[in-house]
Write a protein that binds this DNA or RNA. Structure first.
Length: 202
DNA sequence: CCGGGGATTATCT
DNA sequence: GATAATCCCCGGC
C-alpha cells in the first residue's frame, strides 16, 4: 500500500482522474488515530470552464483559493452551512481542477468514525454522501490547503481494482442550476456498492 | 423504495 | 438578502 504520487495528481485530465480514484483508500491520521475508507463515488470539476465549479471563469475568492494550489492539495469547503466537503486538487498549480469525494466504504477505524458522526452503530449511512464521508474521517474546513502527500491525510493504492464493468457513470448530483454543465457525465461510482449516495433513475 | 421539505450558516451580491 | 457540489426525517406506496 503506497501513497499516490505527486505525478498522479498532476494529471491533466481531471475526469480521468476521478475515474481512477475509485477503489483507492482515503486515509486520515488525526490525533494519532487511523481511519480509512475505500473511495466508491467521485465527481470531477473542471475549474475554469465548468459552470458547476466554484472556480468557473477563473473566479477566485478566499473560500476557493486552495483550488488553485498545487496538485495533491486538499480543498475543503462548507456546504449548506453545515457540511464539510472534501476535494482533491489536480492538474497544475493555478489550474483549479478538483475531484469531489462523494462516498467511502469504511475500512479502518470504524469505532472512531462512529464517535465522530454520533451514530450508534455502523450502517450504510456512515460514509455515504460527501458530507458524511468527510465527517467520518474527521476532515473539516481547517484541513483545506494541506498536502495529500503528508502523513495526516493522504490517498493510497493497496492494489484493489475496480473493473470497467463495475464502474458506473452519470451526471453530477446537486448541480441543477449549472445549466448545460449539469448534464455532463462527470460522476463515477462503484455499481451495487451500498455506500454510493444514489443511483440514476431508470 | 421514493419524493418532499426543513435545518442551518458561510459566502457572495 | 439569497443561495448553496447536503442530510435526515417523514409520509406514502
Amino acid at each position: 500500500m503506497k501513497k499516490l504520487s505527486a505525478q498522479f495528481y498532476a494529471g491533466p485530465d481531471v475526469v480521468a482522474l476521478a475515474r481512477q480514484l475509485l477503489g483507492k483508500l482515503l486515509v486520515s491520521r488525526f490525533e494519532g488515530v487511523l481511519t480509512a475508507g475505500r473511495i466508491v463515488e467521485t465527481e470531477a470539476y473542471i475549474g475554469l470552464t465548468d459552470r458547476a465549479s466554484h472556480s468557473f471563469g477563473g473566479k477566485r475568492t478566499d473560500r476557493n483559493e486552495h483550488m488553485y494550489a498545487a496538485p495533491g492539495t486538499a480543498y475543503v469547503y462548507i456546504c449548506y452551512g453545515m457540511h464539510h466537503l472534501f476535494n482533491v486538487v489536480t492538474n497544475k498549480k493555478d489550474i483549479p481542477d478538483a475531484v469531489l469525494i462523494r462516498a467511502l466504504e469504511p475500512i479502518e477505524g470504524i469505532d472512531m468514525m462512529l464517535r465522530r458522526t454520533g451514530k450508534p452503530k455502523p450502517d450504510k449511512t456512515l460514509t455515504r454522501g460527501p458530507g458524511n464521508a468527510a465527517k467520518a474521517l474527521g476532515i473539516f474546513k481547517q484541513h483545506s490547503g494541506i498536502s495529500l502527500r503528508s502523513s495526516d491525510l493522504y490517498i493510497a493504492d493497496d492494489g484493489y481494482i475496480i473493473t470497467n464493468d463495475l464502474t458506473g457513470v452519470s451526471k453530477r448530483i446537486g448541480v441543477e442550476s449549472a445549466g448545460k454543465a449539469a448534464l455532463y457525465p462527470y460522476r463515477f461510482y462503484v455499481k451495487g456498492n451500498p455506500f454510493v449516495s444514489s443511483y440514476p433513475k431508470k
